[in-house]
Design a protein around this nucleic acid. Structure first.
Length: 420
RNA sequence: GCGGCCUUGGUGUAGUGGCAACACAACAGAUUGUGAUUCUGUCGUUGCGGGUUCAAUUCCCGCAGGCCGCCCCA
């Protein structure tokens, strides 16, 4: 093979595209039910935007970014996620303010330089939403409920909704202090990563899966226990609202997300059918980010869905979507003259709103019939030498095998009169 | 960035230190202008590079890619 797709990237072939379109369509439909509007931002942004927002000590920024210099030496990065670009775009175009809520959604490719494995690629796709302007716990609840609604709409089963609160600028420092003093004595017995985390990002220690670290984690203080009054109150409200709506969730006190901008509510929806990479969506509140990126102090919530993982689930669960891409009319023509007539007829059909195709390889009639069958054509119109003279030919309905003689001029009317 | 397993025609799989097998798909044909079936035929420099050997697809090394796990995330 001369060339292959770059590592960690995949072609989405015509056969699978129908499923992708269906998925994207469902996202759009559900998001707009909740009054969200689509926004499209560039695939790359200045590197600094991501470093500032996601956090300089995070894995994403440290080792996963597709960073490059353009011809003027500017450092740019293929977006590893889209929250920061959306914030940037909304600020730049004045879409958000303290006096209104702005609801947007996006669908598109993201890029992270990681080792590919099941459910993880270097180019992958996310659909996500962001709400700006409200600190009301109702918005947290709305966003989570909408996410769940979307998955229900897609027919996904056995998903778990995990929720936590990581506090705010007021209470988080206290919590980090508690964490540090809790680990202080034992940190030297813990893994190397955790020793680094102890300095750079103690929160992340909670997420460690190493068995030698696990023993110290059990009694570690949880962020929910150190929340200030405001954060604690809003967390309770979010849970109440979800409970009232009948949504089943699990408070996961260990849920730590890998992006630094989260405050208060964080959540993650997981599937037990995916292996190691089991998160299908994740998000939370980020009340400081807009300000951090140069705007006013505007609170925000959002989440992102991993579309490849959803596709994987749909395939696993053998949920089907119907494909009606087949053409209605296929013309089998024999000889140059007949092919010309056929070409004219399919173009008339198309102009008249009837999907049509014909053979362009000069194959035998048998082969043309075969092709018509395989592309799922509903009718085949067979034009040969004899038909040219009488300006009339046989129209065959593939499913029934029924054949009727029809004049060229009557073909379109006959097909149009068919119910779609 | 680390570890394990894997890499044979379009796809899925055999197999052996010296003719690479099978199924499906695709294409062509089975007398003259008709699709699913049947029969026949066609389709591979065995991932790339190097080494051992008279000889390697089979043994060894390197690389790339895939899968899976760690890390992290969607």
């Amino acid at each position: 093979m001369a060339y292959s797709a770059p590592r960690g990237t995949k072609d989405i072939l015509p056969q699978e595209v129908a499923l992708w379109q269906k998925l994207e369509e469902t996202c759009r439909k559900v998001f707009s039910f909740y009054n969200y509007q689509e926004i499209r931002t560039p695939i790359f942004e200045s590197t600094e935007l991501f470093a500032r927002s996601i956090g300089k000590t995070t894995d994403i920024v440290n080792k996963e970014m597709y960073e490059f210099k353009d011809r003027k030496g500017r450092s740019l990065t293929l977006r590893p996620e889209e929250t920061a670009p959306v914030v940037r775009a909304c600020l730049e175009n004045n879409l958000i303010g303290t006096d209104k809520t702005t609801k947007v959604y996006y669908i598109g490719p993201m890029f992270r330089y990681e080792r590919p494995q099941a459910g993880r690629q270097r180019q992958f796709h996310q659909a996500g939403v962001e709400v700006f302007g409200s600190a009301d716990p109702m918005i947290d609840a709305e966003v989570i409920m909408m996410n769940v609604r979307l998955f229900e709409e897609l027919g996904l089963k056995d998903l778990g909704v995990n929720i936590n609160s990581v506090g705010c600028a007021k209470c988080r420092p206290d919590y980090l202090k508690k964490l540090k003093s809790f680990f202080k004595d034992n940190i030297k017995n813990m893994c190397e990563d955790c020793q680094n985390r102890f300095i750079t990002n103690p929160l992340r220690i909670l997420d460690c899966k190493q068995s030698k670290c696990q023993i110290y984690l059990d009694d570690a203080p949880h962020s929910v226990e150190s929340l200030c009054q405001e954060c604690g109150g809003s967390f309770d409200q979010v849970l109440d609202l979800l409970g009232d709506s009948g949504l089943k969730y699990n408070v996961n006190k260990r849920l730590v997300r890998g992006l630094d901008y989260y405050t208060k509510t964080t959540f993650e929806i997981t599937s037990n059918q995916l292996g190691a990479q089991n998160a299908v969506s994740g998000g939370g509140r980020y009340d400081k980010l807009v300000e951090e990126l140069g705007g006013k102090a505007i609170p925000a919530v959002g989440f992102a869905i991993g579309l490849e993982r959803i596709i994987e689930l749909i395939n696993n669960q053998q949920l089907t979507i119907n494909n009606d891409g087949a053409v209605k009319l296929y013309i089998a023509a024999l000889g140059n003259e007949a092919r010309k007539v056929g070409f004219d007829l399919i173009n008339q059909a198309r102009a008249g709103g009837i999907s049509a195709d014909m053979d362009y390889l000069g194959k035998s009639l048998k082969a043309q019939m075969k092709t018509a069958d395989r592309v799922g054509a509903k009718y085949v119109y067979i034009i040969g030498e004899a038909e040219l003279a009488k300006k009339s030919a046989v129209l065959k309905e593939m499913k029934t095998g029924e054949q009727i003689e029809l004049e060229f001029s009557a073909l379109l009317e006959k097909l149009k009169s068919e119910t779609a």
